[in-house]
Nucleic acid binder design. Sequence first.
DNA 1: GACTCCAATCGAATCGATTCGATGCTCAGT
DNA 2: ACTGAGCATCGAATCGATTCGATTGGAGTC
Lengths: 350, 350
Amino acid sequence: MAARPTLAGVAARAGVSSSTASLAFSGSPRVTAATRERVLAAAAELGYAGPDPIAASLRRGRSGVIGVFIGERLLYAFRDPVSVQLLDGITEVLGAHGAGLLLLAGDSGRPPLEQILRMPLDAAIFATCGLEDDPALAALQARGVPVIAVEGPDVDGVPLIDIDDRSGIAELGRHLLALGHRRVATVAMPLRLDGTRGPVGPQRRARAHYRDVRHRIEGVEDVFGPVPVVETASNAVAEGTLAGRALLDVPAARRPTAVLAQSDILAAGVLAAATELGLRVPADVSVTGFDGADLHWLAPTLLTTVVQPSEAKGRAAAAAAMALVAGEPAPDVFLPVTLRIGTTSGPPPA
Amino acid sequence: MAARPTLAGVAARAGVSSSTASLAFSGSPRVTAATRERVLAAAAELGYAGPDPIAASLRRGRSGVIGVFIGERLLYAFRDPVSVQLLDGITEVLGAHGAGLLLLAGDSGRPPLEQILRMPLDAAIFATCGLEDDPALAALQARGVPVIAVEGPDVDGVPLIDIDDRSGIAELGRHLLALGHRRVATVAMPLRLDGTRGPVGPQRRARAHYRDVRHRIEGVEDVFGPVPVVETASNAVAEGTLAGRALLDVPAARRPTAVLAQSDILAAGVLAAATELGLRVPADVSVTGFDGADLHWLAPTLLTTVVQPSEAKGRAAAAAAMALVAGEPAPDVFLPVTLRIGTTSGPPPA
DNA sequence: GACTCCAATCGAATCGATTCGATGCTCAGT
DNA sequence: ACTGAGCATCGAATCGATTCGATTGGAGTC
């Protein structure tokens, strides 16, 4: 088997220079239709399937690949419908621009740095990582790779795609307040990825690495003042159930009348815990979520929640990435959220 | 701002040749520790973050990127726990080899060919696409990119990672047969991605593009002979419900006593349909799935299903990809499945 | 002291395409 | 017929690293 044919080989066979052959393949109008035909015919004869993308990348100075960082292991990240929608939004825009999506996930929350630096990236989107001091972020910036953060680190020169977590959940809080709730608690997503779960004290809270988690706590406290916060080890239904038990399996007098979970997944877990304990929702306890994920399997229950535009977030992130690659500036984006009142919130028990 | 520093610049600054600098960065033992230090120091001064991956790729002849094709739009593909587990298995192995994962999804089932050919891939895994005549597959092969198929096209020179769909579901069938079932029906995943749903006739069936779908039908018929097959438009709970209604909302005399869905997701939909119609499972009708997906939200119901090793499938596919990239042969892999008897199968109604 | 040998380092070719400025050709205008 | 414009094509430099074979310097040996 001969060596794989190159553009030069095709050009020679077609009797043109390699520059012309290149033009022919890129569909430039600067080359005659007849010539193009000739080049394409030669390519077909030699079994040449088009210019080598790597060589083209080198010359062009870009690879057409955008990296997307997922902090967690995929298996866990994609249990979260929001991550999936986000990614879907990203692919939609990248696809339209003909760019590829390189997925970088960390086994244990930390995508291996060495590996990241070996990847030919035009830009990187930090999708669900919250660390301001992420070494990968610094390394990429050092290499001159544009970076975009989605609800992530707020760093100079990094466009931030964010949603209005705080006032969204505050609005939800006011809804509960108006219903008469005074004693509420919140179930938080992980403050850091170290497997910790349980009540959150001040020093733990100070070390929270995720902006959205912080903001969602603050939003609750904007309305109710300091509230008990129970942290979960991951954004999973079972974790929500554990936290729910911890909060609800106590004498009624000390039991919160409403539990604000920081995600719909966690809220589903809290609902399960309530059911387990024989509590009726919302008669005995109200439960709310965040995200507006499409948890069809909760039907006919409709979760009271804050709906966030996950796909729009993805689209905005990808659009920012494409802008930066093109050398244009990319502004921060701040997306609104909306309150959705379902069947899981009602007046507190008398 | 000066032009981005290059290896040559760093080498000059460190007072060594660029070949030595290259060796220093690749951690070769052929270079003295002192020299390496000097090179690294020079790099730090110049703000050089390491060799450019694209240039290195060109020289080495490989990019370190493996493409993974998802036939559907991500949003739908990742609703399926099996896809996610598969991908997780792939990332696990690729990560261990320091390779990256480029996700290629089609908006409408067909990843844009032009775009695929622009991507610097060392190999490609066809994850959930079933088409023997996929133009992308042919194009990649023409370009000399090794291809691996997961439950996908059975093409010469393409290692196939497959599971024992047929005998797995046949075993499930025998379980039902032993329970006394004689009148069964099956709910199929899409035979092609064209949005068709409803009863499947012979000519539609002949045009089925997905091996696993075909095999799972055959497995049922191995036990029961010809059975009614209802196709769904996608592998989603709501689709399972539609199909379930079609099969179950008929006079009891004509109603199947067991419905074998081709996935757990579809089975969940069928369960919902049964509940809607006031049918008890398994007293009035048995329902089974396939995959062994972790559908926690069905609890306490435990689906009778065939458990397939999705992650192992992903690992095998990735391992095959790495082997082919390294120039080694990659054999076909055929993974076993196991029957899991849950609470959704029982004797038919008297 | 001359010679061998080995380790460290260097030079130069190479990977395969893109692109800019130059060249040559044809054709229109006068 | 000569000039200039315009268009298709070509040559050569370039992108930035890797790698192989060659070279150099120094240590070890007799």
